[in-house]
């Protein structure tokens, strides 16, 4: 059983300040979940996730932070594209991800996903853009999934999709500036 309304501190207010999204706008029509490509994989489908946030209860908030869903979202923005009330779920999820990391309650099932994000950003930081091989190497080192998907590598190499030396961009300094500003 859950007790509602015991409200210090209010996660809803914190979330609203971070994301600028008012979850109370949602009237639970379910259109976001209906169209979500990842919903079948999610433990909390998008509309349910928003409903949990609407209650304002710390237990419900914790449940959202610990969920797999916030890490499974691919940010395709189909949900907000269709939402009649323009509730920006992807933006909400961005904030929830950083909150989950701050609170140290990231779903254990999300660790590979986070490692992928880190490898992706690491490659961009080094080269100014994504270097495919660069990404693959860092991801495998982080996760130790050494043989995952290796069967596709020859084909990609043959088609020139996996350049051995990553391409660097001219404006590398500006990219560095961006990373510095966002403290990453």
């Amino acid at each position: 059983m859950m007790t509602e309304n015991s409200h210090t501190p209010s996660p809803a207010e914190r979330l609203k300040a971070c994301s600028g999204v008012d979850v109370q706008l949602c009237y639970q029509c379910g259109k976001c979940t209906a169209g979500c490509a990842m919903a079948p994989e999610m433990d909390l489908p998008p509309s349910f996730l928003v409903r949990l946030l609407q209650t304002g209860s710390p237990a419900a908030y914790r449940r959202v932070l610990e969920s797999r869903s916030i890490w499974l979202c691919v940010g395709c923005e189909q949900c907000i594209g269709r939402c009649p009330k323009e509730v920006d779920i992807p933006r909400l999820i961005d904030c929830l991800r950083s909150e989950a990391q701050k609170e140290g309650c990231v779903s254990p099932e999300a660790s590979d996903i986070i490692k992928f994000h880190k490898s992706f950003l690491g490659s961009v930081k080094r080269n100014g853009r994504l270097g495919e091989l660069d990404l693959v190497v860092e991801y495998k080192l982080r996760t130790l999934h050494l043989f995952q998907d290796v069967d596709v590598a020859p084909g990609m190499l043959a088609k020139g999709k996996l350049p051995l030396i990553p391409e660097r961009i001219k404006g590398k300094r500006e990219i560095d500036e961006i990373f510095k500003k966002s403290n990453a």
Binding site: M1, M2, T3, E4, N5, Q28, F48, R51, L52, T55, A60
Partner: peptide, 13 residues
Amino acid sequence: VDTLLGAQQVEIE
């Protein structure tokens, strides 16, 4: 009850 939370019981003072 909050049926939108999968029929979860709710108690409010």
